[in-house]
Simulated assay, not measured.
Amino acid sequence: MGSLTNKGTKIEGTGGREAEISSSAPQNTSTGKEHDEIDAPDHASIALPAHAGGLAGSGTLDRLVDTARDYAKASTAENTNKAYAADWKHFARWCRRHGADPLSAPCPNPELIGLYLTELAAPTNGAPAPSVSTIDRRLSGLAWNYAQRGLALDRKDRHIATVLAGIKRQHGRPPVQKEAILPEDILAMVATLPHDLRGLRDRAILLLGFAGGLRRSEIVSLDRGKDDTPDSGGWVEIIEKGALLTLNAMTGWREVEVGRGSSEQTCPVHALEQWLHFAKIDFGPVFVGTSRDGKRAYETRLNDKHVARLIKRTVLDAGVRSELPEKERLALFSGHSLRAGLSSSADVDERYVQKHLGHASAEMTRRYQRRRDRFRVNLTKAAGL
Score class of each variant (00 low, 15 high):
148 Q>H: 13
197 L>Q: 02
332 L>Y: 03
215 R>D: 03
168 K>L: 12
268 P>C: 01
195 H>K: 00
227 D>A: 03
130 P>R: 12
101 D>Q: 09
335 G>F: 01
109 N>R: 08
276 L>R: 04
92 A>H: 03
367 R>A: 09
119 E>C: 04
233 G>D: 03
169 R>S: 15
295 K>G: 00
179 E>H: 14
78 E>R: 13
31 T>L: 09
238 I>Y: 00
116 Y>M: 06
334 S>F: 06
329 R>P: 10
358 G>N: 06
362 A>H: 02
204 A>Q: 01
26 P>M: 04
296 R>C: 03
239 I>G: 02
375 F>S: 11
54 G>T: 10
79 N>A: 14
55 L>G: 01
381 K>D: 13
295 K>A: 11
59 G>V: 08
113 I>P: 06
376 R>I: 12
166 G>L: 07
151 L>P: 03
208 L>V: 14
157 D>W: 00
18 E>N: 09
127 A>R: 14
95 C>P: 04
344 S>Y: 09
10 K>I: 15
51 H>T: 07
360 A>I: 06
30 S>E: 08
214 L>N: 05
244 L>Q: 07
109 N>M: 03
300 T>K: 15
355 K>R: 14
289 G>V: 09
91 F>G: 05
209 G>M: 04
102 P>Q: 05
247 L>D: 03
72 A>L: 01
337 S>K: 06
22 S>H: 08
58 S>H: 13
240 E>T: 08
40 A>T: 14
209 G>N: 07
91 F>H: 05
111 E>V: 14
31 T>A: 10
217 S>P: 01
366 R>D: 08
346 A>K: 09
168 K>H: 12
15 G>E: 12
136 D>C: 08
119 E>D: 12
5 T>R: 15
120 L>E: 11
9 T>G: 15
164 L>S: 10
53 G>V: 13
160 I>E: 02
42 D>P: 09
114 G>A: 07
345 S>P: 08
383 A>V: 13
281 I>D: 02
101 D>G: 04
362 A>F: 06
271 A>W: 01
21 I>T: 13
103 L>T: 13
309 R>T: 11
349 D>K: 10
36 D>E: 15
216 R>C: 11
1 M>E: 10
300 T>C: 05
347 D>E: 14
89 K>D: 07
1 M>Q: 10
263 S>L: 00
3 S>L: 15
24 S>M: 10
205 I>W: 01
117 L>N: 10
46 I>D: 06
152 A>E: 05
58 S>G: 02
302 L>C: 11
190 V>N: 00
186 I>W: 01
209 G>L: 03
33 K>A: 15
184 E>I: 05
345 S>D: 04
166 G>P: 05
135 I>D: 05
191 A>H: 00
11 I>M: 12
239 I>V: 11
283 F>C: 04
157 D>E: 07
180 A>G: 12
221 S>P: 08
14 T>K: 09
199 G>V: 00
307 V>M: 05
85 A>N: 07
361 S>I: 11
12 E>K: 13
67 T>C: 00
118 T>F: 01
126 G>N: 10
37 E>G: 09
67 T>Q: 02
319 G>C: 02
14 T>R: 12
5 T>E: 14
44 A>Y: 03
341 G>A: 07
